[in-house]
Simulated assay, not measured.
Amino acid sequence: MTATAHYRGRFAPTPSGPLHLGSLVAALGSYLDARAASGQWLVRIEDIDPPRCPEGADSTILRQLEAFGLTWDGEVIWQSHRHDAYQHALDQLVEQGLAYPCSCSRKQWQAFDIYPGWCRNGVCDATKPVAWRLRSDLAKRPVGWNDRLFGEQHFDPAELGDVVLKRKDQLWAYQLAVVVDDAHQGITNIVRGYDLLDNTPWQQQLQAALSLPTPRYLHLPLVVTTDGQKLSKQNLAPALAEESTGIRRQLFQALQLLDQAPPPALVDESPEAQLRWAIENWSVSRLAPLAHRPTPPEQ
């Protein structure tokens, strides 16, 4: 199945800390692509990993989006409320022979590039907790799609390994949850960072196995520091500005990082004025197909 004509996009942050410039670029890119198409833009909080999600981080992210003028449609969905939906999907995969329990630890197979599939035909150690993995060799393969920025993509997911769907600690893994929730929310267009491009093959396998629609994909260049490090919470990227001048400047920076060539005078305009200009002038064709983009100097 393919995306429907009506555009529905989303921004789906993990609430492991406040948003930074890199996450602003991802949010802004998805927002502008939706609004320029007169579509809907939804927000989903991907909080399925509680140890990584400090209390209150989700509220901070929502406040930051509002401060930058990035208002969303409908209600926010929290993945922590969606366990039954993920279990139903896993049960379907098990029934099809596309998911299996695995007792192996990363330490056991770390000498291999990918997990070797030792538990595909039976759990190696029934005394240990198990994760659930996707049989990437039996699900749809090969996988291909036309990324709206990076062009034709072709992968054999079996060469990427059997991805985890549910962890040994009983927490749900990203790949299954994101596929189930994108379908639940009717997402037709996914705009996200380049670091997730090679996750798409597994997600398309899951979409096919669960008879779910396949959205269109646009992967955006990652924002990196001067030494090439991806801006991330793990790398202690500073949180977005909170005062008005900083908000205007960082929003302008994000437009620059998206190659939208905003006029210099726009940096002094309000977020609302900057976004009006950006929606009217949004063009994916301006984006350079680069995996990484250095942070521009502040205005």
Rank of each mutant, 00 (worst) to 15 (best):
T200M: 07
L210I: 12
A239P: 08
P264K: 10
L196I: 08
E280Y: 01
L196N: 05
L257A: 07
W202D: 03
A273C: 04
L266E: 09
L258F: 02
P238E: 10
E242G: 13
T225F: 04
V267Q: 14
S211P: 07
Q229T: 14
S270A: 14
R216L: 15
L220Q: 00
V223D: 07
S283H: 10
T214F: 03
P213T: 03
D198F: 06
Q205M: 13
N199T: 15
E280V: 03
Q256F: 01
A273P: 00
E280H: 10
Q205A: 12
P263D: 09
N235V: 07
P221N: 00
P264V: 11
A237P: 08
E272K: 14
L222Y: 01
S270D: 13
E272C: 07
E242Q: 15
R276L: 09
L275W: 03
L251F: 05
L222D: 03
Q256N: 06
A208Y: 12
R276E: 12
W282T: 00
E272Q: 15
K230M: 10
Q274S: 05
L240E: 04
L196H: 11
R216K: 13
L222R: 02
P289I: 00
N199Y: 09
A288T: 09
L236F: 10
S232A: 11
P264T: 12
D259Q: 02
P289C: 01
I279H: 05
L206N: 10
N199S: 15
S232H: 06
S232C: 08
S283C: 13
S244Q: 13
A208E: 15
L236S: 14
T200G: 06
G246R: 08
